[in-house]
């Protein structure tokens, strides 16, 4: 672990950087408030030069429509800066939602944070990024 900037419980958004990859923990309920916090963390990391992001949903029970919309904004921002983006520890319900809405076509859903980091390292070695539409989910 290279750097820990902030951390918190399930209700808060926090982030850290490991091996040049920013890992953002999305909090318990990804709504407007937590969504904006997540977006801000992602944006700040991108502005600071990070080119690989993992959003960890391990504490996230629900993602509402505004949360989805904000995640679309994060995907746009990552694409604009040619950064790689990966979601991990997504629960079954949210994974179904991301699949249904087409987010999983644009973002790799890794089963764990470690798997996400492995995928990002592998993807860094070989462009373009691998896209998975059949993710392994957290239950």
């Amino acid at each position: 672990m290279e750097e820990t900037l902030s951390s918190g419980g399930p209700e808060t958004v926090s982030s850290r950087v490991e091996g040049g990859v920013a890992i953002i923990y999305a909090g318990g309920y990804l709504n407007k408030i937590n969504g904006e916090r997540t977006k801000r963390e992602c944006r700040d990391r991108l502005q600071n030069g990070c080119r690989a992001l993992v959003i960890n949903f391990s504490d996230t029970e629900i993602v509402n429509s505004i949360g989805v919309s904000i995640l679309l904004g994060v995907i746009d921002a990552a694409e604009e800066r040619e950064a790689r983006l990966c979601f991990c520890n997504v629960n079954n319900h949210t994974a179904q939602l991301f699949l249904m809405l087409g987010l999983a076509r644009h973002v790799y859903l890794a089963p764990t944070e470690e798997a996400a980091l492995v995928w990002l390292n592998a993807a860094n070695a070989a462009a373009p990024p691998v896209i998975s539409t059949t993710p392994t989910q957290r239950h």
Binding site: K32, S65, I66, G67, V68, S69, I70, L72, I75, L101
Partner: peptide, 14 residues
Amino acid sequence: ESALQVVLGTLAIR
């Protein structure tokens, strides 16, 4: 703005 976000998030429209 919030309403637009809800609409976009409902159908994942960018």
